[in-house]
Design a binder for these strands. Structure first.
Length: 575
DNA sequence: GATTTCACGTA
DNA sequence: CGTACGTGAAATCC
C-alpha cells in the first residue's frame, strides 16, 4: 500500500511517535518524522502490524473512532490520559493540556466559540492551531474543526509536538522512574476502554430475565401490572406495621417515622444500621428484603436490561481509563456494580470460555512494593500474606488483617491501637510511607503515586478537624489504590497484547479482576497467559523489589461459577 | 428544572 | 476497618 511505503520511507520504526488525527471523514491525518500524510483505515491497520509505531492520539475518542472502523491499534500515546497522569484532575482537552505544558495562565485560556468556527474566526485560524498569544486557537480545540487534509495532518503533527513535551515533563519526575512506563500502559488502557465499550460483556438474556423474575416477578406487560407488582411487594412489608400506620417505603423520612412507631429509633434508615434491629421486629427484616428487591427492580431491572443489553447479547457501558481520584478504571451501565446474583447471566458465547482472574491481597502487596519495605516484601512470598504478618506481630490472623487494612485506610474506630504499635515496629518503612502520605494530604500538599500520577489535594472550605482527617485518609488510600490501579492496568494491557493472537479478548475489568473471553480450545493457553502476564507486568512494574503478586485464575462458562470453589471457611475477597 | 441527599451495588 | 465509583428516587433549591 502506498501510505505504508511512505511511512517506511519516512524511516518510521517500531515505537516511533506518529501523530494520528481522525475526523468524521474516511481519511486519517498522520504525521511521521515531520511529514504530513493521509491514509485510510486499512493503511493504518497495516502500518500498525508491519511497523508498529506508537500512534499519538489526542484522546480515547480517537481510539473509539478507529475501533468503530475496525482498527485496533497495538499501542499508542494518549495525550489526555498522560495529561491526567502528569497534572491530575479530569479536564484534558487539547487547549487545557497545551496551556499546562507551555506554562500559560489557565484563567485566560480562550474559550471555544460557537461551532461554526473556521468561517467566522480570526485571520490565521485556518492555517495554524497555535495563536499569537501562545494558546491553541479555539476553532482547533473545539472539536468541530474542519476535516480538510491540511487540518488533519497539522493536528496530527501538533499531537506529536505535544507528546514530546509530555515526555520531557515525565522525564523531569526524577523520583518516579516508572512514570514513562505508566504513561505507556495508561495510554494502552484507553485503547482497551474503547474496545470494552464497543464489544460489551457477553450476557444471556433469558438467564438474566430468569434472575429478575425470581426477585421482582415476571416482566410487567402494562403500567397497571407494574403498579400491582409494586403494591404487592410493599404490602409484604406493611402488613407488619401497626394498625393505621403506613408509609411510602421509597421515602426514607417516612420509613424512619414508621420505624419509630414500632420502637426502632434510628438517625437514618441505611441497611447496615437496620441490620442490628433485624430481630427486634418482623417489619425490619421484611423491609431489608424489600430494599434488595427494590434495588433490582429499579436499578438493575428490565429497564436496565433493555437499555444496556444489545440484540447481540452484549452488555455495554462506557469505559474510562482513569477516574478522577486515584486512577482506577470506571464503567457506566452498571457494569461495575451489577448485583452478584446477576453474574449467573454472564455466560460465555458458544464455543468460548471465560478466563477470570483476580489479584490476591493486592493492596498490602502493592504497599510492600511502593514503600520498599523489606520485611513486608518478605511476607508477600506467602500465598496468604496475613499468615506471616500475624506471626510477626504475635497476633491471630484476623487481628493482623484488620491492623494492616486499618493502617492503609486510616482506621478511626475501634481496638487497633496495640496492633498498630506492633505494626509500626515490624514494618516501619511501610508505615512511614503511609504516615507521610497522610500528613501531606492533611496539609493540602499534592501527592504523586508510585507510577507518577498526581493526586490534587484541594484544601479549603470549612477546615474542621474531621475534614482534615478525612483528607489524610483520602491521601493515604489514594497512593495505595492508585498504585494498585497502575499495576492492574499494566497487567490488563499486557493480556490484551499477548492474548490477541489467541483470539482472547478482555471483556470486563473490575479493579482487581479480569474476565477474558476466549475460544474454548484456547482456554488453557489463555489461563496460563493471564498468569504469565501478571508476572511479566509485576517484574516490569516493581523491578527488584522482591514483591510477589498472585492471581486466582479459573476457566469457567459463567461468571458465577468462578467462586464455586470457595469453602465455608473462606472469607469474602478484600477490596 | 437543576441540584442535593439518601441509599446501595461493586471493588 | 475506609476509600472510590455509578445509579435512581425523593427531597430540596431556585
Amino acid at each position: 500500500m502506498d501510505e505504508l511505503a511512505q511511512l517506511g520511507e519516512a524511516g518510521v520504526a517500531r515505537g516511533d511517535l506518529v501523530g494520528l488525527a481522525a475526523g468524521p471523514g474516511p481519511r486519517i491525518g498522520l504525521s511521521a518524522a515531520g511529514r504530513p500524510l493521509l491514509a485510510g483505515a486499512d493503511a493504518v491497520r497495516l502500518a500498525d502490524e508491519k511497523l508498529r509505531p506508537r500512534w499519538v492520539i489526542w484522546s480515547g475518542e480517537t481510539a473509539a473512532t478507529l475501533a468503530a472502523r475496525g482498527v485496533r491499534l497495538a499501542t499508542c500515546w494518549d495525550i489526555a490520559a498522560v495529561h491526567r497522569l502528569l497534572f491530575g484532575g479530569w479536564r484534558a482537552d487539547p487547549g487545557w493540556v497545551w496551556a499546562h505544558l507551555k506554562e500559560l495562565a489557565l484563567a485566560t485560556i480562550p474559550a471555544a466559540g460557537p461551532p461554526n468556527l473556521f468561517e467566522q474566526g480570526e485571520p490565521g485560524d485556518l492555517e495554524e492551531p497555535v495563536g499569537p498569544d501562545g494558546y491553541l486557537r479555539p476553532p482547533w480545540v473545539s472539536g468541530g474543526w474542519s476535516a480538510s487534509p491540511g487540518h488533519l495532518t497539522r493536528w496530527a503533527e501538533l499531537a506529536v509536538t505535544t507528546a514530546a513535551l509530555q515526555q520531557a515533563g515525565l522525564a523531569r519526575l526524577a523520583d518516579r522512574p516508572m512514570a514513562l512506563a505508566t504513561a505507556y500502559s495508561e495510554s494502552a488502557a484507553e485503547l482497551l476502554c474503547a474496545e470494552l465499550s464497543a464489544d460489551g460483556l457477553p450476557m444471556d438474556r433469558a438467564t438474566a430475565q430468569q434472575v429478575l423474575a425470581a426477585f421482582v416477578g415476571p416482566r410487567p406487560r402494562t403500567e397497571a401490572e407494574a403498579a400491582r407488582s409494586r403494591a404487592a411487594r410493599d404490602a409484604a412489608v406493611l402488613r407488619h406495621a401497626p394498625p393505621g400506620a403506613s408509609a411510602d417505603l421509597r421515602s426514607p423520612a417516612q420509613v424512619r417515622s414508621l420505624l419509630a412507631r414500632i420502637g426502632v429509633d434510628v438517625p437514618d434508615t441505611r441497611a447496615w444500621r437496620l441490620r442490628a434491629f433485624r430481630d427486634a421486629h418482623p417489619l425490619v427484616a421484611a423491609l431489608l428484603e424489600w430494599r434488595k428487591a427494590e434495588r433490582i427492580a429499579t436499578t438493575y431491572g428490565y429497564g436496565w436490561l433493555d437499555a444496556h443489553l444489545g440484540e447481540d447479547g452484549r452488555l455495554r457501558g462506557t469505559w474510562t481509563g482513569s477516574d478522577g481520584a486515584a486512577g482506577r478504571m470506571t464503567a457506566s451501565g452498571g457494569l461495575h456494580n451489577m448485583p452478584a446474583v446477576m453474574r449467573r447471566a454472564v455466560v460465555a458465547e458458544t464455543g468460548h470460555v471465560f478466563v477470570r482472574a483476580d489479584l490476591g491481597q493486592i493492596e498490602p502487596r502493592v504497599l510492600a512494593a511502593v514503600s520498599r519495605d523489606r520485611a513486608l516484601a518478605g511476607a508477600t512470598t506467602a500465598d496468604d500474606l496475613y499468615a506471616p504478618v500475624a506471626e510477626q506481630l504475635g497476633v491471630d490472623r484476623p487481628t493482623a488483617k484488620v491492623a494492616v487494612l486499618g493502617a492503609m485506610y486510616g482506621q478511626t474506630t475501634g481496638h487497633g491501637a496495640q496492633a498498630l504499635r506492633r505494626l509500626t515496629k515490624a514494618y516501619p518503612v511501610a508505615m512511614r510511607y503511609l504516615d507521610e502520605a497522610d500528613r501531606d494530604a492533611q496539609a493540602g500538599r499534592d501527592l504523586r503515586t508510585y507510577g507518577g500520577r498526581r493526586v490534587v489535594m484541594t484544601a479549603g472550605g470549612k477546615e474542621t478537624a474531621a475534614r482534615v482527617a478525612a483528607r489524610g485518609r483520602y491521601g493515604r488510600n489514594a497512593l495505595i489504590q492508585g498504585a494498585a490501579a497502575e499495576l492492574f492496568k499494566m497487567w490488563a494491557v499486557t493480556v490484551r497484547a499477548r492474548g490477541a493472537p489467541l483470539g482472547a479478548r478482555i471483556v470486563l475489568c473490575l479493579h482487581d479482576e479480569l474476565i477474558v473471553h476466549a475460544p474454548a480450545e484456547q482456554g488453557g493457553a489463555t489461563a496460563r497467559l493471564v498468569d504469565d502476564c501478571l508476572q511479566e507486568a509485576a517484574v516490569r512494574w516493581a523491578q527488584g523489589r522482591a514483591v510477589r503478586f498472585i492471581s486466582d485464575t479459573s476457566i469457567v462458562h459463567r461468571w458465577s461459577d468462578a467462586k464455586a470453589t470457595a469453602g465455608p471457611g473462606d472469607e469474602p475477597p478484600d477490596p
